[in-house]
């Protein structure tokens, strides 16, 4: 398969799979803690961070841009927390306004940069919709360098992470430092986002966090299996999406991956044993027939 022999394709495919796996894994916690849209808000909020990083460093260096993205996303998360905790504004309105305002500010910075005489700033637009085709080997190493420690932390503190995701009050009563772990869990979403932004872009990032986890949940009742399955779905969807995008003209990788992943989710929702809607329907018919 061309995908793995050709150097460029290999980078793109491997990069996409890496992102799919990491977002799937880390996104599971966001979904379970009902912070699915936090990823959406934070990925939109990353835009001004990226623009500012470019403004400051003057170059499209992946590390500094990712750091810019991460800082902006974290600021947005802290801001969200402050708003929801101290005012009567509920989380949905806080998310929507944070998303729009930060992103709007990012657009302001982008438009300012566009008037600057730098050729490299054209790449910043790729953060909007992702540009998987532009992934180079250095980007892959950056992803691993950021992604693996996040994964490792989750695995090391697995019991605490699981407990806090399920019952933070009980965890607090045991004396577990819940606040610190909540920061960790928000931090890992930031990690997933900064890694994934390059492939699928701002608008579609939330799908990479949510869809694999929702799909995986339908097939298993154990958290341990769910996160692995989510990683698997994410990687597989990325592989297939990357492959399809090589088949023709005008097939952007990011949207293709999201579509494939959404298809997996639809199939899971319908066909998974026990939870699947089709089985539910059949069971119901059986009961009615029995009466």
């Amino acid at each position: 398969m061309e995908l793995f022999t050709d150097y460029t394709f290999r980078n793109v495919t491997l990069g996409a799979m890496l992102i799919g796996a990491i977002s799937g894994f880390l996104g599971s916690f966001a979904v379970l803690r009902r912070q699915a849209l936090l990823g959406d808000a934070m990925s939109h909020a990353a835009l001004p961070g990226i623009a500012l990083a470019f403004l400051i460093t003057g170059q499209r260096d992946p590390f500094s841009l990712l750091i810019g993205a991460a800082v902006a996303a974290l600021v947005a998360a802290l801001w969200l927390l402050a708003v929801v905790r101290t005012t009567r504004i509920k989380d949905d309105a806080a998310l929507a306004l944070t998303l729009a305002v930060f992103f709007g500010f990012g657009l302001v910075l982008l438009s300012y940069l566009q008037r600057q005489p730098h050729a490299a700033q054209a790449g910043l637009k790729s953060f909007l919709f992702g540009q998987a085709a532009a992934l180079i080997e250095r980007d892959l190493w950056a992803m691993l360098a950021i992604g693996l420690p996040a994964l490792a932390l989750v695995l090391i503190f697995w019991p605490q992470v699981k407990l806090i995701s399920f019952d933070p009050d009980f965890a607090r009563s045991l004396g577990v430092p819940v606040r610190r772990f909540e920061v960790l869990l928000t931090g890992i979403i930031v990690v997933a986002i900064v890694i994934g932004l390059q492939t699928v872009g701002v608008v579609l990032m939330s799908a990479m966090l949510i869809a694999p986890a929702v799909a995986a949940r339908q097939w298993t009742n154990r958290l341990e299996y769910m996160v692995v399955l989510a990683a698997g779905f994410g990687a597989l969807a990325s592989l297939i999406g990357a492959w399809i995008s090589t088949l023709g003209e005008g097939l952007a990788t990011g949207p293709l991956i999201v579509l494939v992943m959404s298809l997996f989710t639809m199939i899971s929702l319908l066909l998974a044993p026990e939870r699947g809607l089709i089985w539910r329907h059949i069971r119901r018919q059986r009961v009615i027939a029995f009466d």
């Binding site: 979904v31 799908a207 929702v214 952007a252 990011g254 999201v258």
Partner: peptide, 26 residues
Amino acid sequence: RLMHEDAAIGLVFPALFSLAVLLISR
């Protein structure tokens, strides 16, 4: 009841938007 409302939103709109982007470019 297979997912919460926020996850539902985060599933539906990226899928539809991706479809739109692909249809446009194709």
